[in-house]
Simulated assay, not measured.
Amino acid sequence: MTRVRFLALGPLHAEVGRTLLDLGPVRQQAVFAILLFNADRVVTPATILQGVWGEQTPPTGAKVIPPYIYRLRRTLQAAGVGHDGPAIDSLRIGYRLRLGSAGTDVADFDEAVDRAAAAERAGDLAGAAELLAEAERNWAGEPLAGLTGPYAQSRRQHLLERRVVCLEHRLELHLRLGDSRRAIPALVALQAEYPLRERLTIMLMAALYQAGRQGEAMDVFSAFRTRLATELGVEPTPALVAAYTSMLHGALGLPPMPGGPAEGNARARAATTT
């Protein structure tokens, strides 16, 4: 029996083999997203109302939810995935999505990141980098793209943070393997996406320095310091100043990423509870 796979690292959808399941209009999808990220746990109507509508609670209150649940349940039943497939239970205090044999791209991402951490602990930096690249291949764009409501927005931010931590650590591994030339284009693109993220600035400085482009590395520091002053009104942190000072003395190294992607991933998983 072909299993269902739920995809949230991009527009939310579900598939059975090559067949897409229609999860309905945007608000119905937003309801399902809450159930999905709390799979196998009971979610109260109050949590769904707050997560989907926020302060704009509909006049009918929780009565708006059962029709969405009914249509989602029918969609899962119509998929014909057998008794061990996903199903939605209506309980006295709320609703529960039982995943059963269904998979998710978020779980696949987590698994690849965890395997990368194990490879790195074993000293296989190249293998860890490849596993992080495998983790990144689960992404198909902005997570939960198009979904509205406080819950979807919060999950989106957590997932994006998890992605950038994964990217940073893969590029860090490339630098530790001496592959700075390969890392530089990706770091430049990532810093353009996150212009105030200090870790990326330090990594880009280190990559340019390793590649013999010390002048460009100093320019990166100067530009970042200017952005901090102009946009946030703050000075560089001691970590960034230390990296710059090391570069001036001809010994710029790459400080370790605290915890690596596995620790950041664990924190992000814990944050997905309601």
Rank of each mutant, 00 (worst) to 15 (best):
R3E: 14
R3Y: 11
R3P: 14
A8P: 02
A8C: 12
L9V: 09
L9Q: 06
G10M: 03
A14R: 00
G24A: 08
V26E: 15
A33M: 07
I34F: 10
L35D: 01
L35V: 03
P45C: 06
A46R: 11
G54N: 04
E55F: 07
T57S: 14
T57I: 11
P58H: 03
T60N: 10
V64P: 05
P66M: 10
I69T: 03
R74P: 03
R74K: 14
T75N: 09
G80K: 00
D84A: 15
G85N: 07
A87R: 14
I88N: 00
S90W: 05
L91S: 07
L91W: 06
L91F: 08
R92F: 09
I93P: 10
A102C: 04
D110I: 11
A112I: 01
A116Q: 02
A117K: 01
E120L: 07
A126D: 13
G127M: 05
G127D: 04
E130R: 04
E136H: 10
R137D: 15
R137H: 14
E142C: 06
L144Y: 05
L147A: 04
T148Y: 05
G149M: 08
H158F: 09
L160H: 10
R162L: 13
V165Y: 11
V165F: 11
L177N: 01
L177E: 03
A183L: 02
I184Q: 06
A189N: 08
L190P: 06
L196S: 00
E198M: 07
R199V: 02
L204T: 01
Q210P: 04
V220F: 00
A223V: 12
T226N: 10
T226M: 07
L228H: 08
A229N: 12
A229V: 01
T230L: 11
G233Y: 02
P236F: 06
T237F: 07
A242G: 05
A243L: 02
T245F: 08
L248S: 06
L254D: 03
G259R: 02
A262L: 11
E263Y: 09
E263W: 09
G264W: 01
R267L: 08
A268Q: 00
A268K: 00
T272F: 09
T274S: 13
